[in-house]
Design a protein around this nucleic acid. Structure first.
Length: 229
DNA sequence: TGCCAGGCCGGGT
DNA sequence: ACCCGGCATGGC
């Protein structure tokens, strides 16, 4: 509890290295929700192709997406992979949003009035929405102070032994929330920084730890043998 | 050329 | 309560 500063120092080091990430570029909160589903285990470059196609087709609104023919969705989002699963997930989410917001409310303002815990429960109850997708929506689309945990976050903290090897999603999330002020902009950019450092230096295989900006702060990471080859 | 990407679900122990 | 195979495309 006394090490509240450590994570802020970690963020400072990343911010120093990469600058503000201005992450999750999207033209509306609803587009963030769409991206949150499409990026599940998928490279963002592929996601952008799918999002662009949906935009051109005029399907980036809850009602239009809800009513689209699944076949048509399959074609439009194919580059993002898992397209049959993701088409269903998008439509379930679109219908859920539609139940809460009037169509013109592109800021999803009506959703923000609902209690945070209830929002999260409702999201997790949707088939195809797990903890990371739900939290990404809460943070980046609804501006709620929820820290998003992803595979990079777990790998980075794991290799520096800042979390237990068998830590759950909730464990890692608490690690951050208990040590950071609940600041939406901080949560957004910190997660973005972790993804950036993860992509560049903390890859699953052949990591480049020597050049990682976290190394001066956190020291030598502990790698599995399979990571090094 | 295989491996990986900003996960999640369902069925099996 | 875990563990695992399946889901799919595109880039390096």
């Amino acid at each position: 509890m006394g090490d509240r500063t450590n994570l802020l120092e970690m963020y400072a080091a990343l911010r120093q290295a990469f600058g503000h990430r201005n992450w999750w570029p999207a033209q509306s909160p609803f587009e963030v929700i769409v991206g949150a589903v499409l990026t599940q285990n998928t490279n963002w470059d592929n996601v952008e192709k799918a999002v662009d196609s949906l935009r051109e087709a005029g399907l980036l609104s809850p009602s239009a997406l809800s009513e689209a023919a699944p076949q048509r969705l399959h074609e439009l989002i194919r580059p993002a992979g898992y397209y049959r699963q993701k088409a269903g997930r998008l439509q379930r989410l679109a219908r859920w949003v539609g139940e809460h917001c009037i169509e013109a409310d592109s800021e999803l303002g009506a959703l923000k009035w609902e209690p945070l815990d209830q929002l999260r429960e409702e999201l997790l109850a949707l088939n195809g929405v797990g903890p990371e997708t739900a939290d990404s929506i809460l943070l980046y689309a609804l501006e709620k102070p929820v820290f998003v945990v992803d595979a990079y976050t777990v790998r980075i903290l794991g290799r520096h032994e800042l979390i237990e090897p068998d830590a759950t999603y909730g464990d890692v999330q608490e690690h951050f929330v208990h040590r950071l002020p609940p600041d939406v902009e901080l949560f957004k950019d910190f997660h973005a920084q972790l993804v950036e450092v993860g992509k560049r230096y903390c890859r699953k295989r052949r990591p480049r730890c020597a050049e990682c900006p976290l190394r001066p702060l956190l020291g030598e990471p502990v790698l599995e043998e399979s990571d090094e080859a």
